[in-house]
Design a protein around this nucleic acid. Sequence first.
DNA 1: GTTAGCACTCGATTGTGTTGAGTGCTAACA
DNA 2: TGTTAGCACTCAACACAATCGAGTGCTAAC
Lengths: 342, 342
Amino acid sequence: MQLDERKYLILQAIIDDYILTAMPVGSRTISRKSGVGYSPATIRNEMSDLEELGYLDQPHTSAGRVPSNKAYRLYVDHLMKTVKLTNDEREKMHEHLISKSKQVEGVIRSAAGVLSDATKYTSVIVAPKLGTLRIKHVQLVPVAERTALMVIVTNVGIVKDALIRVPDGMDADELYAISRMLTEKLADKPLEAVRQAFSELLRNAETNRKLLGETLQVIEKRLESGGDASDVIVGGQTNMLEYPEYSDVNKARSFLSVLESKDTLRNLLNRDGGMEISIRIGPENQLPALSDCSIVTASYRVGDHSNGTLGIIGPTRMNYNRVISVLEFMGRALSDVLSEYR
Amino acid sequence: MQLDERKYLILQAIIDDYILTAMPVGSRTISRKSGVGYSPATIRNEMSDLEELGYLDQPHTSAGRVPSNKAYRLYVDHLMKTVKLTNDEREKMHEHLISKSKQVEGVIRSAAGVLSDATKYTSVIVAPKLGTLRIKHVQLVPVAERTALMVIVTNVGIVKDALIRVPDGMDADELYAISRMLTEKLADKPLEAVRQAFSELLRNAETNRKLLGETLQVIEKRLESGGDASDVIVGGQTNMLEYPEYSDVNKARSFLSVLESKDTLRNLLNRDGGMEISIRIGPENQLPALSDCSIVTASYRVGDHSNGTLGIIGPTRMNYNRVISVLEFMGRALSDVLSEYR
DNA sequence: GTTAGCACTCGATTGTGTTGAGTGCTAACA
DNA sequence: TGTTAGCACTCAACACAATCGAGTGCTAAC
């Protein structure tokens, strides 16, 4: 059996309605819709076919039909009609975004807020992988006897720091000299290339080997751990609880638990693709706890080679089309704002 | 009517039981308890008195009794017997805490995790007020044409940064010189005193007035806004959903909404008291959304004059005694870890 | 002062119709 | 041959009544 024009039309009508109401859709409902000129009986026959083809599910005999994951896949790939955002909306979002433009983290937080407000779903933004950022400046600041704070400023204005031990009796001037040297040697190198640069440094260094060694170690440890919790920003967690899908506390809890684990989220969102939108529907994402969620992601750029990810997590019956528009817009806007200072 | 010994005993037994089960407590239950040698009938008479005195509520005629907020107040002030943490527990917590000891934010996040894991409630940690921290180092790092990142390192290893515009044509060396000057002038001054220090600086400065002016402005803006979202760390949000009090999604949602608003949390937790434990029961905290929660807070110290707050938010029937022990221990542990590098 | 006994209350649970949205099938129709 | 009206059927949801039982207050006896 093949899908003809009419089946597409009916399936689309069902999905549109279900996205709106979250209630099983009956044949009468579709029949009444403008644009579908068939009686309930005809629709019923088609629905029966669509069910057999795996596009519709029936919660129980006397209920309407519900779109399957296969149906959503078809929908986003072929059926969906794209809707543009109004200029007004774009402006509002942009305005919000630049309100914290003095700090990179502030911008990203604002962006998460804007995303979740605009879509009414949960938003997640992952900062670019540390390793791809380029070092701009390294500074060792003494904070106490035998302790210094190493501060690394990257090309996009993201700052990372870590405490390191310094040899007894080393004074501020010495640390200053080392900072200058490190900055000079490491400037414009991506963080992931720091090991090579360092090993060379270590070979030639006659003094401070121990300090340099520890510094390298700290940087590497930070790189290999994948990232900090602060690199993953979540917005609008409670939005999800507005939907009937989550009126059961247990479901809500397991959903929110996933949001609490930043590592899981980072893995979930990180993707290799370019700027295009990626959509994972239901079980297409591997996490069982999110098996009735869909995840839509886009990328933003900071600097020349670093990409971060922004995404929306919502129920599978989410408003894909609006989500995609918003993500596309915000991906661009975020890239612009973060690159403005470059 | 006064509270005699027996009334105390019975009230305590009721509260202990209710904390455990969250179910209205009946006279038979109390009578069976070891340590209470009275028949249900006697207990009933006492319970009736206690209700009249405002210490107990009755959801409906044929249910047991439930402690009132007044009862909890009495409980934490007089009745509660303190239980010590085992050495094993202390060690486990401490171990977790120092696992991320290379970064201040990491330590605080770990602490939030430890707190919520140890208590099974929600934990909140507020970083010390920015204004009370002392400046250790100021660095302006060029990140792009006409843009620099100002990085301020404070005495406790907390780093704050912000982008500032710099005049056209200013090169790295100049910024470097200004950084040195700023560091020299501002070192060891608390951030809130920066305005005075700056105004003096501005008076005497013959060059770069505009840049210095903007720098001051950026610092001040940051101070007056009260703090960043990253200064408030929440742990174990979903723990709360385990309790029957929050089996209603609407309640859960309004609770979680409060946790999403970092400003509200900061205000809620910030307190002037010293190191002692503060307990606010039910409506004693002003937020209606948290009117059936209790908030227990303690302080931790970083540096000489800066205090942060750590707290637990749980249902009013929380295990106060354990929460207090954990907070006391963690307050000390956190202070130690954060001061270790000083 | 304490307690056994007892009638009473009232939420929770269980069982029973009843309703209504929605289906599948058949037969008539264009 | 595709479409549709008609009709019997299904089944969750809702409302209502009956029952159960945990717990109470009161009284009278110890």
